[in-house]
Nucleic acid binder design. Structure first.
Lengths: 236, 236
DNA sequence: CAGCACCGTGACGATTTTGTGACAGGTAAG
DNA sequence: CTTACCTGTCACAAAATCGTCACGGTGCTG
């Protein structure tokens, strides 16, 4: 959770504001007023995340980002860009470079912190090697097996990862976007509705042991793995 | 609790005094000596609250406040005005612009801190992820579930958001227009009476656990979520 | 008590969201 | 080069939810 964050921002007041919020959230802050200083810092130690102002004196933020992406060593460092306006042109340019997220000024620090949290979590997928068992359904990451009692259940790789994620984050609702980030990977371009299809494949595989009811649809929000029975159906 | 506060005050001694108190209370302070500096800051980052001196060199505080209210992005930032005069006329003018509170100099720091706390609390619960529980009714945004004891209650997306808003802003009357803004979204074209229908759907869903009485009609004004029993009828 | 403004309610068509079956690649094993 | 999976996308079906309306009830005013 706690991370080392490189903050590249020329406006002192804003830099101070962001730094204070980051510190309060438990992160360590490395500050840079311009791209040159930032470059020097990155050479010494790789941060876990870079917060980068689009407009900087001297070398622009976008140029710095491009350089980060260009070098093997720094390629995988997540970048969040702070941009003056939400113009489509900027957004496209940013995506090209591979910024992980965008925050447009004026931004609320609260929202910025939320984005940072999201990006960090996306980058550090929680993959315990421990077996999970819920409601008689057992998933073992080591042997890559799923079983219900003696009954073995066969799944494709994607459905396996999906079920693993859902079981290790049970009871929570996950949006399709979140599932894509966590299960498919960070920078994958896939239709959101594809999640539906895999949910369906997962369900039909679990149908044999009547475990398909554990995967619930939350209309307008996403999906949830839950042991609790749905409220509606008192089907008798 | 901890917030980012923009302090616009030209008198250095006063500024220092207030800033020290804010910092001690755990807040982060952004300082500006005049409206121009304040404008520059707001262009980049939205504070959680603005403490604004009425009298400023150059552009007046009231003018700055008016500009904040005029722009979409900054409209909802709470403002507390600081003024030397205590004339009724000023108070009216300030409230007209939409200042959330009003403190007259000389003020006691303790009083000011209390006002700040009050305003922040009023604005805060809008974006919380925490579960809410009132009168045995529990709403959890994370699992997207509503329960009364072991009994689960099913709601559509809109009713869910409506109940969430009402519960996080309980004991207060909300007009239909306010509810539409807060629950439906800012620029939605929907009949006001539609709120009635959703209130009704919400009530009938809560009826099973006898929680429908928590949602009260305030004739001529709107609706209120309240734990207190209505004074009027002891319906048996 | 009449008139009026306001609210609750049931119904219904429209819209949005999700489930489902089919299909065209893609990949790895044989 | 087959064959046997997997995958991502689509189009369409099914389902849930939404917004509106009309009607009737309720409480306030004078």
């Amino acid at each position: 959770m706690a991370a080392n964050i490189l903050l590249v921002e020329d406006e002192p007041a804003i830099q101070e504001l962001i730094a204070a919020n980051l510190t309060r959230a438990g992160h360590t802050v490395l500050r840079a007023q311009d791209a040159e200083i930032a470059t020097r810092i990155v050479r010494d130690a790789l941060p876990d995340l870079v917060l980068l102002d689009w407009m900087l004196p001297g070398q622009s933020g976008i140029e710095f980002a491009r350089r980060l992406r260009g070098e093997e060593r720094t390629r995988n460092v997540p970048i969040i860009m702070l941009t003056a306006r939400s113009e489509e042109h900027d957004k496209v340019l940013g995506l090209e470079i591979g910024a992980d997220d965008y925050v447009t000024k004026p931004f609320s620090p609260r929202e910025l912190m939320a984005r940072i949290k999201a990006v960090l979590r996306r980058r550090a997928p929680q993959t315990t090697e421990d077996a999970v068992e819920m409601a008689g359904l057992r998933l073992d990451p080591v042997t890559h097996r799923i079983s219900s009692g003696a009954q073995l259940i066969n799944l494709g790789p994607t459905e396996f990862r999906l079920l693993h994620f859902l079981m290790t984050h049970a009871e929570r609702v996950h949006s399709r976007a979140q599932l894509l980030d966590q299960v498919w990977g960070d920078h994958v371009f896939v239709e959101e509705r594809t999640v539906d299809v895999h949910i369906r494949r997962l369900r039909s595989a679990l149908e044999a042991t009547n475990h398909d009811r554990l995967i619930q649809t939350v209309r307008g929000s996403g999906y949830r793995f839950s042991v609790e029975v749905m409220a509606t159906g008192e089907l008798e």
